[in-house]
């Protein structure tokens, strides 16, 4: 049995993702977000953070045509597209503050059926069970890529 620590991010009541320690930066309550026109519905606003604009993403909204944007918390994540490239950041909407958990590799499970059938399956690295719910581990650089944006656009 191998235990790994991670952050559990509840993106919606039925959808949670796990973020590794090195990706999680901080969470922000009631961020000031600015809407940007003509952008994907799941990523249609930015917030100003550390002297830069970072995209605010509703991962649970990837499969929807419009996001509800009721969540009042965002988690700032760092990612790196390739070694030696600078770190980039995004904000991911969450229902509540992230929770530190221990992930047992024996709890790995198949993707939930609704994920297998969705475009999110293109960016899921693995999934595991926590508190009787499936939790996804996403490839964050792929989530932020032009390829995924085109896939999401084509699926609407």
């Amino acid at each position: 049995m191998t235990l790994t620590s991670a952050w559990l991010l509840e993106c919606s009541e039925s959808f949670s993702i796990a973020i590794s320690d090195h990706e999680m930066v901080e969470y922000v309550q009631s961020p000031v977000c600015y809407g940007i026109p003509a952008t994907p519905p799941y990523c249609n606003s930015v917030m100003f953070w550390q002297n830069d604009f970072i995209p605010v993403m509703d991962v649970a909204g990837v499969n929807k045509t419009a996001t509800e944007q009721a969540n009042d918390i965002v988690c700032i994540l760092n990612y790196q597209v390739a070694p030696m490239l600078p770190l980039q950041s995004i904000a991911v909407r969450a229902n509540k503050a992230p929770e530190k958990i221990q992930v047992d590799d024996q709890l790995a499970c198949d993707f939930p059926q609704e994920i297998s059938a969705s475009i999110l399956s293109n960016i899921v690295l693995s999934s595991f069970t926590h508190a009787d719910q499936s939790v996804l581990v996403l490839d964050i650089p792929k989530l932020c890529s032009a390829e995924f944006r085109q896939l999401a656009n084509a699926s609407r």
């Binding site: 940007i36 003509a38 604009f53 989530l143 032009a146």
Partner: peptide, 16 residues
Amino acid sequence: QTCMRTSGNPIEALLL
């Protein structure tokens, strides 16, 4: 950023 760009979006950058 890349994830926000769409083919029809004329917005190229932001300024605060």
